[in-house]
């Protein structure tokens, strides 16, 4: 049984002086939804373009099922480029059939598949319209259909969720999940970290052309320290500061976020809290993917402007805001 994995192995790419990829390595397994996150310019798109062969790597290898990916293998990959690309003046259905046939699908099967995907993605009514007459959201649906129409063995999608309304996000998520359940490895990049966290089996965090962390969200969390959120109205400032093995990470009003070193007893913290006032809230905080992402990329020197699109709205209050209820 061949190993049905998409492997990106030590891929390097530089543009003149700029190093775009610096030993990018990860794999996407059969039936796995892999979220690819990273700041702008971190190398996500470059990686995907190299996988699809539209860009040549300076070094390294991309393998599918144990073999280097060549043109024959690429026609089994479904691809959604970052910059959307469809013929603006071609009718939607004709376009999908054409793309399916370029991937080797026989005409009749291509027609059936195009119809089925247009139906599934809710754009069947626009099948005879020119692509340029569709709304951006609908163009995006057609773009997804273009990635799926030839029934690919692997899906590589660059920012598939950007610009979609909530309904379309649900449809897209559902479709990706289904393909995944059929055994198709799916890798997609996104800045919508909540979505990635909810949807993906595994997540890879990219910074400065390298994979700085990869694994399930829980695995990524396991690297961090344990964290407690406690709310004690009227407690004196610095009430939790001298406890052994504990560091106050942030204070916001009555709420204090405390990091626990390994071995530290959270019950000590609770006792101290009860001693200084009424405890309204005492819970274990779990860092969100957004937070994990920030700490992962902030330790990396070469990543300027590290900031996720979704997290930027609430960073005045510090990381505490984004601690989610366990």
């Amino acid at each position: 049984m061949p190993d049905r994995r998409l492997e990106i192995d030590d891929v390097r790419k530089r543009y003149g002086e700029v190093v775009a990829l610096d030993g990018m390595t990860f794999d996407v397994r059969e039936g796995e939804l892999f979220g690819f996150v990273g700041s702008n310019g971190a190398g996500k798109t470059t990686t995907m373009r190299i996988v699809l062969g539209v860009l040549a790597a300076d070094a390294g290898q991309v393998r599918w099922a144990g073999r280097p990916v060549d043109l024959a293998a690429r026609r089994r990959i479904g691809y959604m480029p970052e910059e959307r690309g469809l013929y603006p003046k071609m009718q939607v259905r004709d376009q999908l059939v054409h793309l399916a046939r370029l991937h080797g699908m026989p005409a009749a099967a291509a027609g059936r598949s195009a119809d089925a995907w247009l139906e599934r993605l809710g754009v069947a009514a626009r099948r005879d319209d020119e692509v340029q007459k569709l709304s951006l959201g609908n163009q995006q649906r057609v773009q997804l259909a273009a990635a799926l129409v030839h029934d690919p063995e692997v899906l590589v999608l660059d920012e598939p969720f950007s610009g979609l309304d909530p309904v379309a996000v649900d449809v897209m998520s559902q479709v990706l999940r289904e393909k995944c359940d059929e055994g198709v490895p799916v890798v997609f990049s996104s800045h919508q970290l909540e979505l990635v966290e909810r949807l993906c089996d595994r997540v890879g965090i990219v910074a400065a052309g390298r994979m700085v962390a990869a694994g399930t969200v829980d695995e990524l969390r396991a690297d961090g320290t344990e964290r407690i959120v406690v709310e004690v109205p009227g407690a004196p400032p610095g009430w939790a500061e001298d406890l052994p093995g504990m560091t106050v990470r942030a204070t916001e009003g009555d709420r204090t976020v405390v990091d626990l070193a390994p071995g530290a007893d959270d019950q000590d913290l609770l006792r101290r809290a009860l001693a200084v006032g009424p405890v309204r809230e005492f819970r274990r905080g779990r860092p969100s993917l957004a937070e994990l992402f920030r700490s992962a990329v902030s330790t990396d020197e070469g990543a300027p402007g590290v900031r996720s699109r979704t997290g930027s709205g609430s960073d005045t209050a510090g990381a505490t805001d984004e601690v989610t209820v366990a």
Binding site: A72, R75, R76, R101, L102, G104, M105, P106, A109, R112, S113, D115, A116, W117, E119, R120, L148, V149, H150, D151, P152, E153
Partner: peptide, 14 residues
């Protein structure tokens, strides 16, 4: 409508 029921990958390359 089972999109892509053509049987994945069993068509020849062009």
């Amino acid at each position: 409508p089972a999109p892509g029921s053509g049987g994945r990958g069993d068509y020849p390359a062009l």
